[in-house]
């Protein structure tokens, strides 16, 4: 007998919310909240002009069309919360780095693609954006500190960037690096941190359909504190893997050592896949506190994305996959 295992995004037609209802509901929620541009659906209807986004040359690219495959099981986090509760140690160790992060110049922004590739590429962010298929996805985001959000990212699949980069067959890992500019990022003057921030994925992870490069947030160019102008989003892993403000993609043979892994290997490993059963050395990961709702909810294996990514870890059971 053929048993078809339904994957996470595959819901029967009858369960799908009719578009009209979907939009109406979103308008209602958005109406209740103070910010009219809170939700993607409402945004499509109202399209407010944002003064701060006008200067950004990529502002016209958003909102991108939403990919209906990636939806949520929980309410969207309020934009005001998602853009004011940030871990961005380059700008300080508190969650409130909005003001400090505004010092980061994001144009011109050159992205270097190097290492085991057919040809090294150096490309400006706006040229890169022209070559990439932009879309919006709603993802859960689970921080290792046991809080979470549910947010609309705009951007392109990391797999598209990998294809663009044309890595050779020897490439086993993708190493990503954040800008290094202690002049504008005072956190980078703290010399006992292993700057610049580095993160890595296996090639299989990097080309998994979920792996995403975000360049927009809530239908606008992504704010600096959230990792402008481009950041990684790997929603099945703890948030620290999703490196911000990337300037370099290197295809390498050796497993890169991430920023937090270098700082505290026992607490922040290379794999860092979300698993409620495996506690952090200092706290349980069984539950998470959501921004905006301020509720504590159970954490899901692979942050609820097991259907998409569990296969990636077959045969790797001896690795410390969940920390």
């Amino acid at each position: 007998m053929h048993v078809r295992v339904r994957r996470g995004w595959e819901i029967p037609e009858r369960e799908a919310t009719p578009e009209e209802v979907f939009l109406r509901r979103r308008r209602l929620i958005a109406g209740l909240a103070a910010a009219p541009a809170l939700l993607a659906g409402a945004r499509l209807l109202t399209r407010p002009a944002f003064a701060d986004a006008v200067e950004d040359p990529s502002a016209g690219l958003y909102p991108a069309t939403q990919n209906p495959k990636y939806l949520l099981d929980r309410p969207l986090t309020a934009e005001a919360d998602a853009t004011s509760w940030n871990n961005f140690y380059e700008f300080g160790s508190s969650k409130d780095v909005v003001e400090e992060a505004q010092a980061l110049p994001i144009r011109p922004w050159m992205v270097k693609i190097d290492g085991l590739v057919e040809q090294e590429i150096e490309i400006g962010i706006d040229d890169l954006l022209k070559q990439m298929p932009l879309e919006e996805r709603l993802y859960r985001h689970r921080c290792v500190e046991a809080w979470s959000m549910a947010v609309p990212w705009s951007g392109f699949p990391l797999a598209s960037l990998v294809a663009f980069a044309r890595p050779t067959g020897d490439a086993r890992y993708l190493k990503m690096t954040t800008f290094m500019n202690p002049e504008v990022a005072p956190g980078q003057q703290v010399i006992w941190y292993p700057w610049p921030y580095v993160e890595g994925l296996t090639m299989a992870e990097a080309t998994n359909e979920l792996a995403f490069i975000a360049t927009g947030f809530y239908g606008k160019p992504i704010p600096k504190q959230n990792g402008a102008p481009l950041r990684l989003v790997v929603p099945w892993k703890y948030g620290f893997k999703s490196i911000k403000s990337i300037v370099q993609f290197s295809f390498v043979a050796e497993r890169p050592v991430g920023f937090w892994e270098a700082l505290q290997e026992s607490e922040y490993g290379f794999w860092a896949n979300v698993n409620p059963e495996v506690p952090h050395p200092r706290w349980s990961q069984a539950t998470e506190r959501q921004l905006t709702t301020d509720e504590r909810v159970p954490t899901l294996l692979f942050n609820g994305y097991a259907d998409y990514v569990a296969d990636l870890y077959k045969g790797l059971e001896n690795e410390r996959l969940y920390a």
Binding site: S84, W85, K95, D96, R289, L291
Partner: peptide, 8 residues
């Protein structure tokens, strides 16, 4: 105080 009021 911050988005996660209880934690803060």
């Amino acid at each position: 105080i911050g988005a996660l009021r209880l934690m803060e």
